[in-house]
């Protein structure tokens, strides 16, 4: 919670701005930007090392002041302690993430996880869990904007929401027992698929 709240305020405020940007830009431009970004992040995750449990030798003053540290129990029973570093650049990046989340009208887990994990040094499981929590806040602010603009078509929206939510309940249970390496490759695979599909649509191929 302490990791998520400061990030959530930044991202959800910027998601409102992003939602209006997304509504103003042509659809194909949004899809190309989205696809390019997701593929770029998938490649970044693929080539980067030490993402399951990043080494954080010393916490930075901002992270310490905000109490961004904690512990969790691995599926093996091991107690893992974690703390953040590079907190300020991480928080600045969430401005961009918030705008993009609102603009693209979809969850920014693909961006939350790498920033929390690769930049701020949060273990992958904590990054994924925090990202999931963040989505409920960031995307809510953007969702209100889209809804108020008359952009929600119930015929499509309701099955999507129900399907996503039921899928999430299953996913969270799998996360608790899954091996971090498996999660990593799953995330990369899903990102590549989503990114290439968006690029494909945006380029009109």
């Amino acid at each position: 919670m302490r990791l998520a709240l400061p990030v959530a305020v930044i991202a959800s405020s910027c998601a409102i701005v992003g939602a209006f940007l997304g509504l103003a830009l042509p659809t194909n431009i949004v899809q190309i930007c989205l696809g390019g970004t997701i593929v770029g992040i998938a490649i970044l995750l693929l080539v980067s090392k030490n993402v399951e449990r990043p080494q954080v030798p010393k916490q930075d003053p901002i992270g310490a002041a905000l109490g961004m540290h904690g512990s969790y129990v691995e599926y093996t029973g091991e107690l893992v302690h974690w703390k953040t570093h590079r907190t300020l650049p991480g928080l600045f990046l969430f401005i961009l993430i918030g705008v993009m989340a609102g603009m693209f009208g979809l969850g920014a887990g693909w961006a939350n996880v790498p920033v929390l994990n690769l930049l701020m040094g949060v273990p992958l499981k904590i990054a994924v869990g925090t990202s999931k929590f963040l989505l409920s806040i960031t995307d809510t602010s953007a969702a209100w904007v889209y809804m108020n603009q008359g952009c929600v078509i119930p015929l499509m929206a309701i099955p999507s929401i129900v399907g996503l939510m039921l899928g999430s309940f299953v996913g969270v249970r799998i996360l608790a027992v899954a091996k971090p390496k498996v999660i990593r490759y799953l995330v990369i695979g899903v990102l590549l698929f989503a990114g290439l599909r968006s690029l494909w649509k945006g380029l009109g191929l």
Binding site: A8, S12, S13, I16, I137, T140, S141, V145
Partner: peptide, 8 residues
């Protein structure tokens, strides 16, 4: 955060 969400 509450104010941001209420605004939205």
């Amino acid at each position: 955060e509450v104010l941001v969400l209420i605004l939205a």
